[in-house]
Amino acid sequence: MDNLIDIKGVRHAYRTKAGPLPVLDGLDIQVAESEFCAVVGPSGCGKSTLTRLVAGLMRPDEGEVWLHGKRVTSPRKTVGMAFQNPVLLEWRNILDNVILPLEIVAPSMPRRDRVARAEALLEMVGLSGFEGKRPSELSGGMRQRASLCRAIVHKPDVLIMDEPFGALDNFTREDLWQTMRDLRAKEPFTAVLITHDLRESVFLGDQVIVLSGRPARTQYVLDVTLPDDRTIDILYEREAGEMLHILRDQIKIAQGRGAAEAQ
């Protein structure tokens, strides 16, 4: 099994009062070990459902989700999650927020080791010195940094992110893209990033998957052929520009299909 994540022919419908609402219809995604997979698509196309599937929080009606050669049927300890809302626990300081997953996954790990691990991560994302602060004392970008640390503190196989930078302003967002890039260089992990931002998908992704409008299927897969140590500047060069162009066109097609079905 080469792929760390293997999603094969997944279909899923939510049961609503107005009858079944299909959200996923033929989803195929393959992500290799330590690859970064960005997923883009029109609003409301079922991207968040995808995160819940990979995390094992729900099971698809049809199709299979494989993680590390094992079929996902229930939550696994080997997943880290980050959302648009950083969902930090307000009654804990930043350090104890980052430690939280270790309390569940590695209950026997000594406190000293947990603290050391969390401190190392916080340093990587530039939050040294904020360990004792409450989440409410931090800016939105800093909270999201802490949330990312919490998502990878237990060294998960997969980091699943659902628009983690969506609520941040542009400059903060670009800062966090670079933090993400540096974090990966030091701490390799496999990642699935759901995003609305095409530039983000190209800057961070090794592959970008375009989903069609609801019900979502895999519409297009773009291999990002940029060097690993890319800078924000690269987004303004020809190669990235062409990729963004292709993605833009694909999104238009995806939206078109969604609109046609809605009529």
């Binding site: 819940r52 995390a55 094992g56 929080l57 229930s74 939550p75 696994r76 300890k77 997943v79 880290g80 999650m81 959302f83 809302n85 969902v87 626990l89 307000e90 009654w91 939280l100 997953p101 309390e103 569940i104 996954v105 919490r150 237990h154 699943i160």
Partner: peptide, 24 residues
Amino acid sequence: EYRDILRSLGASRVTIFRKIALPK
């Protein structure tokens, strides 16, 4: 999301209640 963060780690309902729901 609060629940999902712990649920995705395989935490039990009791743990989720104790660590998140109760203090919140």
